[in-house]
Design a protein around this nucleic acid. Structure first.
Lengths: 341, 341
DNA sequence: CCGAAAACTGTAAGCGCTTACATCGGAATA
DNA sequence: TATTCCGATGTAAGCGCTTACAGTTTTCGG
């Protein structure tokens, strides 16, 4: 068996009896080539199974038509969903998506940023505004367009698209407080490196103050993302002897874990305790009672993000911040506090 | 502000007053360079904020330390989960992961295969054995190592890692049949382009024959992946007047949709009807009653796949097929047929 | 049927990096 | 001291592709 290496532009050119320039044009701007030649070239391309060498193309051209995205984890449905929409939209605009995940670690994120940029990403999608100065400097130095999603902060350096986590959580909290809840539990994702989680916690604090409820009535547990961790957190919250009438959860997954655990502990939701989530992923409607949560338009955000980022990359004007609406989904897991015990 | 472009090897060389070759060696095999020079070069690299141009490096060197993965969709938790493990393992071995999704479309998959390979992927992870001849030929022609995951077929051309979908579903079906079920519903993902779905359907057929149940007692509906579509499919199954005592579902998501719909229609699970899923994703334990399903070790598969693919890429020996065990998870949504009505 | 414009196609110069090969001081050996 | 070696460094040839520019062929109005 002959070891024949990967076909190059040159091979195609030879087979079609044209110059490499013509083959290149055939691939990049077919309208410049006569139909006869084009057919001949295409035939050769197919016969040889030719695919352009990306590296070479990048070097010679400059644009890669590639967008990179760095998300905390693929295992979180909201990112998966938003990203799928992002990719679909990107595809229709002729861009390819490269995904990497950071596991919520700043140093990994930095590494991934470098990897994607050195691979020629024309633009980057990042999650949230929390980011080391190193990364910000690097981004600035390389002058690569970057868009932050799942966050909304008109004051931030990087442009962003998202919703106002603080306001959304405030709206939910106000609804909850208006139901007479006074003793409050809160299961949150780590706030240290996650501005979204932080904003949600602040919102609860804020609304409590508005309602004249002492901060002493708030008990917070931070934990990792997951159903199990949500369950454990709920357990500790109860075991600690606080007796919340409502438990806010930083997201639906934690909330579902909490609900399961409540059920296991013989605590009825919502008659004994109310539980709320955030995100409105599918699981929220699957549990019984259905989970009261905040609906976030993840797909829409992904699609819009794609549009904006492409505009940035192609040098068109774009909005520095784009705010989408998150809406309250009042469902069965929330009831008034008066009904408690 | 001066527009200064991205620094190149040349800039670094100039600043350190050495040749480009020395800088390159400094970066790739530091031990070949004297310490004094090395320090000077490193200083220059840092001062300039230099990052090698990936494209150029690939062209000159040949290896990219990049692995590509093409999955049907990121929105399916099983792929997200497996892929996250895949990436984590890849990282520890010094590889970067590039992900693309095909939306279960063969032509899109082909496009993505080309995109990833032209971007220099040293190896490819693919899902399932169903694949157009075009892609197979292309892969063969380019001689790029490719590993198929979520499937197990010793006879297939491409090496694979996964579990035996047919056997796993047979095991579940035997368990179900042993409970006396005779009238059977089946909600499946599209079998046309999905060998895993096909194997599961075949398994049910096979076990029915084993048990001497007429194929007429089997009613199949194919539908897309999703909770909603699962619900709709369940509805049609019932509306069609078949009166199944058990409904097998191609995966947990469809099963959960079916359960929800049953509940909405006033059909009790499992006393009126049993429902089973496949995958054992988290949602399976969240629903009430808990979903009877087949547990698939997605994370383990992802991690193992990474190891095998790296071995393939680096020219070490590797197993042509690796089989993992899928295990039955008998849970509340399955009961014996005698209990029906 | 002529000349100019239009439509194609070819030539060749890089893009930034790696690496085989050449060069060049010394250190080691005789 | 002359010869040999060897480590450190420089030189320069590509890697495969795009594209400005130049050359060639058609097309067409007059």
């Amino acid at each position: 068996m002959t070891i024949r290496s990967v076909p190059t532009l040159d091979d195609v050119a030879k087979r079609a009896a044209v110059s490499t320039a013509t083959v290149s044009r055939c691939l990049n701007s077919p309208e410049q080539v006569s139909e006869a030649t084009r057919n001949r070239v295409n035939e050769a391309v197919n016969a040889l199974g030719y695919t352009p060498n990306f590296g070479a193309r990048v070097m010679a051209a400059k644009r890669t038509n590639t967008i990179g995205a760095i998300i905390p984890t693929m295992e979180n449905a909201i990112f998966a969903r938003g990203l799928q929409a992002f990719q679909d939209e990107l595809r229709t605009r002729g861009y390819t998506l490269l995904v990497a995940s950071s596991s919520y670690k700043s140093d990994v994120e930095e590494e991934q940023v470098r990897a994607l940029i050195s691979r020629g990403a024309d633009g980057l999608l990042l999650i949230g505004h929390d980011r080391s100065a190193t990364i910000m400097n690097y981004l600035a130095a390389r002058n690569v367009p970057a868009l932050v999603a799942w966050a909304h902060d008109p004051g931030a350096v990087l442009p962003s698209i998202g919703f106002d986590n603080f306001e959304a959580m405030c709206a939910l909290a106000r609804q909850v407080m208006s139901l007479g809840h006074q003793r409050i539990g809160l299961i949150s994702a780590a706030t240290e490196t996650n501005d979204r989680a932080r904003a949600r916690v602040l919102a609860v604090r804020h609304v409590m103050q508005e309602a004249g409820i002492s901060p002493d009535n708030l008990h917070i547990i931070e934990t990792e993302y997951g159903i199990e961790t949500g369950a454990t957190a709920f357990q500790s919250l109860i075991d600690a002897g606080h007796d919340p009438s409502v438990v806010f959860c930083g997201n639906d997954v934690l909330a579902v874990g909490a609900m399961k655990q409540a059920q296991k502990m013989g605590i009825n939701v919502p008659s004994d305790i109310s539980i709320t989530g955030f995100d409105d992923i599918e699981i929220a409607r699957v549990v019984v009672p259905e989970l009261c949560t905040v609906h976030v338009p993840h797909r829409k955000m992904g699609a819009r993000a794609a549009g904006i980022l492409v505009d940035m990359v192609e040098g068109r004007p774009f909005p520095h911040t784009t705010q989408l609406d998150a809406t309250l989904e009042i469902r069965g897991s929330l009831s008034s506090a008066s009904a408690v015990r």
